[in-house]
């Protein structure tokens, strides 16, 4: 009886398991094997040094890694801080038309990537972009956003922050709303100021949610592809904004070196997991 019921259950699960095996498990295993193969010759041969050896000595890889880390180290804290501030503002009883603001903050996520990239390219155009016009109005000379590597990097950080800060704010807002009002009322009766309530009550209680957002953002930053591809013109200028995601794409789909691309992919995944675990460990709840 039990085993026939199990069979029926597996029967229902079979279509999913089949698709999962073909499109998930098999590529994961296959790409892992591929990372140990020299895929630049035909037939492919087992040659661990071809990809993994190259990875550790390739200046282009280190450039992409450096760019990704700069974005991650600057963009994630800035975005999470902004998202927390936005969430607190959205949660304020003084704010009218909350629904409208919630939608406005979340809207960048649903805007098509190509459209958003095009708008950013226009806004940051050297000659007629609104950003430079505003800078000029403030007495600051125009910045060549696409021709100078630091400016292009800043542009990427601004773009990614614009796109994802609202998304994280909505997640943090959910966390804020789960903190009961009477905890704040108790603190008010304890003569604790609003600022101290935020520092000593809100932030510690939001910690799991903020950690979740940080981990999601780290994974997202490690895989960053759309923005450097579309906004800064394929990692330009001169590889100045080339990220690991873009480097992987170029190796895999421009140079068709699948073995090397697989090794990059595994390195990216390992880094994302390591940084996320470190983050979870640092932010763990004290015993």
């Amino acid at each position: 009886m039990q085993s026939s019921r199990n069979r029926a259950a597996y029967g229902f699960l079979a279509p999913y398991l089949l698709i999962f095996a073909v499109f998930w498990i098999w590529p994961i295993i296959s790409s892992f094997v591929m990372s140990f193969q020299n895929t630049r010759i035909n037939p492919w041969t087992f040659s661990p040094g071809a990809n993994w050896g190259r990875l550790f000595s390739d200046p282009a890889f280190y450039n992409a890694l450096k760019n990704t880390m700069i974005i991650l180290v600057i963009q994630v804290p800035v975005m999470i801080t902004l998202a927390t501030i936005m969430a607190v503002l959205l949660n304020s009883p003084l704010l009218k038309a909350k629904g409208l603001f919630r939608f406005a903050f979340f809207a960048p996520v649903v805007v098509g990537e190509v459209a958003y990239a095009a708008v950013f390219r226009l806004m940051f155009n050297l000659d007629f972009g609104i950003v430079n016009k505003l800078l000029n109005a403030a007495g600051i000379p125009s910045i060549s956003w696409f021709a100078e590597a630091p400016a292009a990097m800043a542009l990427l950080i601004i773009a990614v922050t614009w796109r994802w800060a609202g998304y994280n704010a909505i997640i943090i807002l959910a966390g804020l709303q789960s903190i009961p009002d009477d905890v704040y009322e108790a603190a008010t009766l304890d003569r604790v100021s609003k600022l101290k309530q935020f520092i000593y009550i809100t932030l510690p209680l939001l910690r799991p949610i903020i950690l979740f957002c940080v981990v999601l953002s780290i994974i997202g930053s490690m895989q960053l592809f759309t923005e450097p591809f579309l906004i800064t013109n394929r990692g330009g200028p001169g590889g100045g904004t080339e990220t690991l995601g873009l480097f992987l794409y170029r190796q895999g789909f421009a140079s068709l070196n699948f073995g090397y691309a697989s090794a990059i992919a595994y390195t990216m995944a390992a880094l994302a997991i390591a940084i996320s675990l470190l983050n979870l460990w640092v932010g763990r709840e004290p015993k």
Binding site: P180, D182, V183, E185, A186, I201, P204, L205, R207, E285
Partner: peptide, 9 residues
Amino acid sequence: FQSYALYPH
């Protein structure tokens, strides 16, 4: 308070 309102952390 009815719900105790203790600081959970």
